[in-house]
Amino acid sequence: MGQALKDSSILIDMAMLYATLSLLCIGGTIPLVPDMHRFFVDSRGLMTTSEFAGYIALAQAAPGPNILYVALFGYHVAGIAGAFTTLGAISAGPFVFAILASKFFARLQDNPWREIVLRGLAPITVGLMLAGCTLLTGGFHDALAWSIAAIALASFMALPKLHPLWLIGAGAVVGALLSL
C-alpha cells in the first residue's frame, strides 16, 4: 500500500512537471533540460547525471522524435506507466493547442506578435539550451571525457553536413574501446 501510494505520487509529480514544461516549450525541448535535470537528478536523486545524459543520447540515436528521452526518464522512474505519464503529460497541452492553431490558422499567421515574440525569446531559449549542456557535462568525470567532447564538438562545427548519427555512433565505439 505504501509503495503503491509512493508510486502514484511520483507519477502525479512527473505529470505536473511535464504538463507545466509543455506550456513553456517554445523552440524545442532542449531548453527544458535544466528543469528536468533539477527534478530527476538534483532534487529527487532518481538518476545520475550520466544516466540522464545517456537517455538523451539514446533517444537521439533511435528513430523518431528526439523528445522521446522524456519517455525514457519516466520509464526509468516508474516503468511503462511512467513512460506513458511523461510522454502523455508533455503532449496533452500541445495537442490541444495545435488543434486550435489549425482552426485559427489565418489569424495566427497574420499576427505580427508571432514574429516579435519568437525573435525576442530566441536568445533566452538558446541560453537555456546552453545551460542544459553545461549541466550534462556534470557527467564528464575525467580529462578523457572532456577530450572526446572537444573533438566531437570540433567535428560537428567543421562538418555541418555530416549526419550527427555517425559521430554519435563513433562515440559509442570509442567509448567501448577506451573503457570510459
Partner: peptide, 22 residues
C-alpha cells in the same frame, strides 16, 4: 562505457546546435 561515449558526443552535438542557433 560505449553508452558513456555516446552521451558525451550527444552532449557535444546539443552544444554545437545551440551555437548554431546563437
Amino acid at each position: 562505457s560505449g553508452m558513456k561515449g555516446m552521451s558525451i558526443v550527444a552532449t557535444a552535438y546539443l552544444f554545437a546546435m545551440s551555437l548554431k542557433l546563437a
